[in-house]
Design a protein around this nucleic acid. Structure first.
Lengths: 328, 328
DNA sequence: ATTTTTGCTGCAAACGTTTGCGAAATTGTT
DNA sequence: AACAATTTCGCAAACGTTTGCAGCAAAAAT
């Protein structure tokens, strides 16, 4: 019924605890026969080492923390799945915490991570998070912190991001090459750095490359907002709509369907996306890919670099690619 | 730089370790002044108790394991988010592992859970999993195991499921009440128990309630399959399509958009869904809700019941509700 | 002034491991 | 047969907590 321990095995076999411990990890000091006896008994008793005891003794938890606003999000989802996979493959476990965009929960999650003596942290901070000292404190304790996606504007942080400005530029270029003249752009929360960067880059590109093109900008923090804002925007008869994210795209598409417009005949649509949402529709929506999966890979390898002793502060960005659908 | 421990605090304050421990947890034995001194120093030193030491000492990890085929799935996502929330609220942590529908990874994940001395496990087994002995072994060790969604056909297991047959029946009834006469039904992997149950219930209801209605059944294991199968089905000019899941709905909708058909004028659509996908479209798709969120709540309370000492084996099912969109 | 009560604190064992060091048993070398 | 070298193993401390028990001082009761 209870758990079997090294001690229990040692008592049954008449050996010392240390011998059992060494036998189980194939230590050269132990003879082959002894090893076999030990391993056999261990498997029949379903021995599993107590991770808590090991962590306590070795102070190496093989545990990563991952704090994210919400796991119910296409982009973060892909990110998490990717990190989980890499972690598991390399013998690390993952502790996933949602902050719900609430800084106080975020702090609480951080506390949990510290209590569990994580060996590293992946974190996407909430928009309201202003004080990143608690995170920097981790760094001081030699616990690497990799900020991803929404990152603080602080040079002391390791960051991995999607190309915020560049992806908007790419989308703008594509719109121009398709000769769009009256372009509506729907952006997310205007207080977020990513929104500002994308908007600036988008506006700049459109103006530089095509002085003639007219631009209508609006903001929509949620899918519902995006839908209602689009209804308004459509009155201006734009010939293309740019969406800053999947959430916005979905609202836009709903509005377009509601109005009975057809793509790309009545107007074009382009978005920045993780890749799933544009494929929900026919024709598939042309998008600039910002892959959560790729970002996860990059975050993981960045983490590994830190654990490997690199003190070099990394500020990485994954490249974007344009995926053509039939929506322009 | 390093972590502060009870010992360190005790040395600074000239008190014993036990006094510090008690002071920090507001033990009545400790005087108010001492408590204050201790708490103050602890906060300035950023003391965080070592969870590993506590778990080791108390053998109560406050950690749940959660094994799921994939976290990149609307339904499981909602489930996980729900369980994570409840767990966190009650001071439990969650260790989320993906099996990728691979039984060997599943076993490995289970091992990880055991090593970390989880106090309970939520698991959705992969379709290929035949041997559930390893899970039952946990139960013997007084570690509750709550199977959810895809559950083994074994009376010794605690299960929480969505209403598989009933939800299909409800959808069928809705189709009949809307006087649909030529109904196409698109189902998932025919080898899964859930597919069989839903198909049987659907067929039975349609035939019993409306002998006149014509039924066309096909299977689509993936969204892509659903799209191509729908293209075929549409040639038969059905007046309604039933989708067994979100994944299928998306394929169906893409086909419908491709063919330029309009809902509900040209044909009706109804689906079984977690709730997100039907709201992607306009008009929103009518669906029978099988809520991952609700299932999570149920799983969590079931877990709590087990931890509370209930040895009663539960086999629970969440009720489904019909959510009307404008697609019929 | 002695005893009893009350309030505060410390001792030490235990949880399950890992690991440096030393000791015993075996083998090999003269 | 005596010694050295080698193989094989055990002792004990340490990781950071919790907690039953005992100790000790001061205040209250006799």
């Amino acid at each position: 019924m209870n758990n079997t321990t090294l001690k229990k095995i040692s008592e049954i076999l008449g050996l010392s605890i240390s011998t059992i411990s060494r036998a189980l990890k194939d230590h050269p000091d132990i003879s082959a026969k002894t090893k076999q006896r030990v391993v056999e008994l261990a498997t029949t008793l379903d021995y599993e080492p107590n991770a808590n005891a090991i962590n306590l003794r070795t102070s190496n938890s093989k545990l990563f923390g991952l704090i994210v606003p919400s796991i119910s999000n296409w982009f973060y989802n892909a990110f998490i799945a990717s990190v989980e996979e890499d972690s598991r493959r390399n013998g690390y476990s993952l502790m996933i915490l949602q902050s719900g965009d609430d800084p106080s929960i975020e702090i609480n999650n951080l506390k949990l991570c510290r209590q569990n003596r994580i060996t590293g942290l992946f974190v996407c901070i909430s928009p309201e998070t202003t004080n990143i000292e608690p995170f920097l404190k981790l760094k001081e304790m030699d616990i690497p912190v990799i900020f991803f996606d929404k990152v603080p504007d602080d040079a002391r942080c390791n960051k991995v991001c999607v190309a915020d400005a560049l992806s908007a530029t790419m989308a703008a270029n594509e719109l121009i090459s398709k000769k769009k003249k009256k372009i509506a752009g729907l952006f997310g929360n205007p207080h977020l750095l990513i929104t500002q960067k994308r908007l600036e880059a988008f506006r700049k590109t459109i103006h530089e490359k095509s002085g003639a093109a007219q631009l209508i900008i609006d903001y929509a923090p949620s899918t519902e907002d995006a839908e209602s804002k689009t209804i308004e925007l459509l009155k201006e008869k734009p010939d293309a709509i740019f969406c800053m994210s999947d959430e916005i795209l979905i609202g836009v598409m709903k509005a377009i369907q509601r109005k009975g417009l057809s793509i790309p005949k009545d107007l074009g649509v382009i978005t920045i996306s993780n890749g799933a949402a544009p494929k929900l529709y026919f024709p598939e929506i042309t998008y600039v890919e910002t892959s959560g999966h790729k970002l996860g890979k990059m975050a993981y390898s960045s983490m590994m670099a830190c654990l490997g002793g690199s003190t070099f502060i990394q500020d990485l960005t994954i490249e974007s690619i344009l995926v053509e659908g039939g929506s322009l």
